[in-house]
Design a protein around this nucleic acid. Structure first.
Lengths: 131, 131
DNA sequence: TGGACATATGAACAGTTCTGCAGATGTGCA
DNA sequence: TGCACATCTGCAGAACTGTTCATATGTCCA
């Protein structure tokens, strides 16, 4: 409902634009709102240091909850909550073995993003916010 | 302070581990806490749909604030706030021309991530949370 | 110089997110 | 069967994030 139709009508809507043509073409290229939201969701999952650490830990293979808690320094409860979220978004998958639950990365796209980001951060010394 | 030294001492610390060797090796591979946090910060910036939309809009070249506001549907104030954050993290840069401010993507890594993610989301139908 | 305009900023409020706690579920072993 | 263990879950408080509103800064033009 916020697509090019709106943009076409802008001349009457009195929203001043500096470069209306670019705006129209950018809007034409813009992915659907749902796709943007889904993509942002994925980034958002990676945007928490603890979850990111969990995922980095899983790059090499599966680990159980208590080992993940040890690696990340989180409580087991917090670890479980975090894993639940990741599971809900199909980023990780569980294999249950007796009373243990072994988690593994289950999304090739996320794996790529994590790999990429970590590699990048280790080389260049990352982005430095002005703080 | 949370590095391998801790992990070595775990046997006495009574934190039960299922696979202590893997934990140790994962910890050895784990990037420094600061790097994890910096990386998560970047993902976090991309994790908001409006900011992501701003960045997607900038993939093709610079745009001024009011055009960005039009594309994203944000108020100009909200747009400005968002851009400030992105600017603080050096993800975007400004060029001022008279009373206009033209923003552009200024981080190759972020550009790659955005490109990649958007391409991916448009092909496969993304991750569907169970909600 | 004064007023309109484009953008930036600060403060406050609202919505969301994360954590710990307490208790629930399900498994293995004596 | 009963107990210990590993994990999961709902809830409530704390912390964080994003928006709006009001105001400030700096630019252009008459």
């Amino acid at each position: 409902m916020n697509s090019s139709a709106d943009v076409q009508g802008l001349d009457e809507c009195a929203v001043r634009l500096v470069d209306p043509e670019r705006v129209t073409s950018v809007n034409a290229r813009m992915p659907a709102e749902d796709d943007i939201v889904d993509t942002a969701d994925v980034f958002s999952l990676l945007g928490d240091p603890r979850r990111l650490k969990l995922l980095v830990a899983l790059l090499d293979g599966e680990l159980c909850v208590c080992d993940l808690a040890a690696v990340t320094g989180l409580s087991e409860s917090a670890t479980s909550h975090a894993l639940r979220l990741l599971r809900a978004h199909r980023v990780v998958a569980v294999r249950r073995d007796g009373r243990n639950a072994f988690y593994r990365l289950d999304d090739a796209h996320v794996r790529m993003l994590v790999d990429l980001a970590v590699a990048h951060t280790e080389h260049t010394d990352a982005i430095h916010p002005e703080r």
